[in-house]
Every structure is written in structure tokens, then in C-alpha cells.
Nucleic acid binder design. Structure first.
Ligand SMILES: [Mn+2]
Ligand SMILES: [Mn+2]
Ligand SMILES: [Mn+2]
Ligand SMILES: [Mn+2]
Lengths: 225, 225
DNA sequence: ATCTTGATTTAAGCGCGCTCAAATTGTATG
DNA sequence: CATACAATTTGAGCGCGCTTAAATCAAGAT
């Protein structure tokens, strides 16, 4: 093991796999090899071999030809990485003045390099925050998640009022655009209209009416007020 | 090449080798294999193989059985790493409130993970600083070094007055101790006495007289006033 | 000039994470 | 039920950075 690798053998590649598997197992059941490979920019055969190694290390539970889920130990590491990613994002935004559409890339570069003390210090400086700049929940140190009442904007009846809580994408261009339209966490809105046949979604913001496509609108989660 | 490796193939290991070679070639001539290996915590045989690869990549000039020096390209990368290390140290100290004896480890973890934008933003936030918390010079983006008139404290005649500019060590314990004695960059001092036979060095600080061993005193560099 | 000794390089091999190509498996379909 | 097809795994191999053991080299002492 190289000296710059974590003593426990938990290196960057491992953490990225666990991170991806965590996200893929959030909604559905198991994470399948092809999806994991695709998210990591790797061939399915490469991912398959790596998954077997992760299973040997008891970080995932692997059912051949079926898919993978995280073990408690794997989940712990995944949540730690996600916590760090989101803390760094918020730090970059609040302390260092980066725009919300810029932080994901830099945070990705830093998330696996953070030391415990650095993580804790950022957490303190930010006042033990619960969400990243995009509104994703920041897991606590113990792996638990803060409470949230986020519902998809598009699931609400026309006329509903609420506060944007999360914009669920890492796409820099979309974030930049939505930010320019005044659509970001903390903003109070009213859902004015959803045009049929995948038509525009009209939203009342403090700055006026904006209309966006449904592909963007479905990224928005709100807390109903 | 893994996706988390720099496109140019400039990964952590490479940067650490270049960093070490830069420091070893500062004073003397060439950096020899054994010294490089020792600084990196690696066997000489391992270092030997790696050095050959670095030479193939034109990052060092290697004279077999003699030693290595950096090529202009290698020096550029080494200086970039050193710049980032020292900027991060200062950032951790000034912005994040870490003590000067704590920053080296964290900076080492972060230095190779920094993106260009992050480096630039830190530089801005810190007001384009020229020295790390220990007083080492921060190379500029173009690879040039700020001017400095640092002389070893122990090279001065008794009675000399000056300002501490650099404390040349990364040893956390020593730094903590010297900091507690009021000996750190920016402090005005007078050299009161150097006892013979490796005896104590007595220094007048704004807070009073302190006596330290010559092993510690020789780490201190001052600008004579 | 030869010998000795320490520094250095070479050789062989390992673990990691990746590739491509081939074999295998599970499943959907006729 | 048999077959076709897509997903997955296996096999062979590569580059990297490391190890230990063996060979080689440089240089000073005799
Ligand atoms: Mn992100
Ligand atoms: Mn985020
Ligand atoms: Mn340092
Ligand atoms: Mn320093």
C-alpha cells in the first residue's frame, strides 16, 4: 500500500464506488453492474471485478448477476464521503464565494482528501449545517440524516405555495440557469401552471413569474407552506 | 489511467517525488536515490524504478549511479505543489483557525487535490501572500520566488536585533513549543547569548527572555533590523 | 592495481484498477 | 420449451508503484 493511501486501504476508488452504489440503491433495490460502471466511467467488466473485491472486503453485499447493496460498514463510508462532499460544497459557496453551480467539481476533487479534523472544522464554521447549496441533506457524523419534508414540485396541485428546499442535480449549466431565474433553495414560490403535453411550468417567485421546462421543474423539491 | 488521475498523468506519487527532489536539490547538487527513497518512506529499489520513469517523462534529469535533478517541466510541477501546500497552510491557519503546528499534515493531504480555481481563490482571499505560517516563501504562479533577506539566527553576532521571518521545520512538537515561547514569524527579537559547547541560546522577545537549545535555534531565520 | 564496501540498479513478483475479448448466465419472447 | 439477446462475469493482459533478493557499480583503502 502506498504511503499516501489510507491505512485502512480505503482509497479514492473504493470511496467512489461506495458513493455511487449508495446513490443507486437510494430509490430502487440493488445497484446493477452496468449502472455502476456507467456512473464511474468504467467498463462493466472492470466494475464487476472491483465489485467482487469490495464484497471480499465486506463493504458491499454482492449477489452475482443480480446487483450490489452496501453493508453497514460500506454505508458508513459512503455517508462519510457524501457528508464531506456536501460540507465542502457549502464551504466553497459560503466561505469562499463560489457560485452554487461551480462547487460540485471542486468538492469532488477535495472530498476524499479531507481529514477528520478538517471535516469537523468546516462543520463548526458552517454552524453544523443540514444541507448543501443545492439543498441535499448533509448526513450527520453518526450516519443519520436530518429530517426533511421535501416533495417534488410537480407533484403539487396548481396554486400550491411553498419554499424551494432542493434542486436535485449536479449539472452546472442547469444550476446556473435556474439560479438566474431565481429558483434556488430558500426561495418562496407558488406553482402557477403546468402546461399539458410536457409544456412549460410557470412559477411565481419573489421577482416575478418564470416559466421553465418540465425536465428542469422536476428537479425542484419544495416544502409546502 | 483511472478517471480520478490528472489527464496529464501527473498523479500524487509523481508530485511527491518531484516535491522531494526539489527540496533535496535546493542546497546541494543532485538528489541521490537513497535520500529520495528515505524521504518518501520507500525502498531505494522502488525509488530507482520510479526515477527512471520520471526521467522517461522528462520530469527529471537522471544520471545513473549519480542522482537526479529536475527539468524545467519537473520544477514547474514541484513549485506548483509547494505553492499549493503553503497556500493551504496559510488558509488553514488564517481562515480556518488551525494552529501553526497543525497545518502541515492537513495541507499535505490537500495539496495534490486542489484545483486551479481553488488555488487562485485562496490566493485572493489571503491577499496574494508571500509566506506560509512558518515563513517559507510561497512560489508565485509563474514559478518565481518572492525576495527575502533571511539569515540564520545563529550566524549573527551576539546583540543583533531582527525580526523572525522563518522557522524552518515541519515538526509539529517543535513548532508548538517554539510558538509557546513566543518565537514565530513577525516577532522582533534580540540575540542575547549563545552559550558554548552547544549550550542554550538566549533570545529577547517582546514577552521576555527565552532560552532554547541550539538544535531549535538553528531552525530560526531572521531579517536583521 | 586490487579489494572491499556501500550505494544503486535490475530482476521477479504482487496488488490495484483498468482494458478488450470471450464465455457464461438470466430472461424475455415466439 | 427452445431460442435469442442483453447483462454479467471470467480470462488475459497492462501500467503503476511498491516489495525483497540478487546483481552491479563507484570509489576509497590497502
Ligand atoms: Mn455535488
Ligand atoms: Mn450539492
Ligand atoms: Mn508544510
Ligand atoms: Mn509551512
Amino acid at each position: 500500500m502506498a504511503h499516501y493511501t489510507d491505512p485502512a486501504g480505503v482509497n479514492d476508488a473504493t470511496l467512489h464506488y461506495l458513493d455511487v452504489i449508495y446513490r443507486l440503491t437510494q430509490q430502487g433495490e440493488m445497484a446493477n453492474t452496468t449502472d455502476i460502471a456507467e456512473k464511474l466511467g468504467v467498463t462493466p467488466s472492470g466494475a464487476s471485478v472491483m465489485l467482487k473485491r469490495l464484497a471480499e472486503r465486506k463493504l458491499i453485499q454482492l449477489v452475482p448477476y443480480k446487483g450490489a447493496t452496501l453493508t453497514p460498514q460500506g454505508r458508513r463510508l459512503a455517508l462519510r464521503t457524501i457528508r464531506r462532499h456536501r460540507l465542502v460544497e457549502l464551504f466553497l459557496h459560503r466561505v469562499m464565494g463560489f457560485a452554487w453551480h461551480e462547487v460540485d467539481d471542486h468538492a469532488h476533487a477535495l472530498e476524499t482528501a479531507l481529514t477528520d479534523a478538517l471535516e469537523d472544522r468546516m462543520d463548526e464554521m458552517l454552524g453544523h449545517p443540514t444541507r448543501c447549496p443545492h439543498g441535499h441533506l448533509i448526513p450527520r457524523k453518526d450516519g443519520s440524516l436530518p429530517e426533511a419534508n421535501d416533495v417534488p414540485l410537480l407533484s403539487l396541485p396548481i396554486g400550491s405555495a411553498g419554499v424551494i428546499r432542493c434542486v436535485d442535480t449536479d449539472n452546472s449549466d442547469w444550476l446556473k440557469y435556474l439560479g438566474e431565474q431565481g429558483l434556488y433553495p430558500g426561495v418562496s414560490i407558488v406553482l402557477k401552471d403546468i402546461a399539458p403535453y410536457d409544456g412549460p411550468v410557470t412559477i411565481q417567485t419573489p421577482e416575478g413569474l418564470v416559466a421553465i421546462g418540465q425536465n428542469l421543474a422536476k428537479l425542484i423539491y419544495v416544502e409546502v407552506s
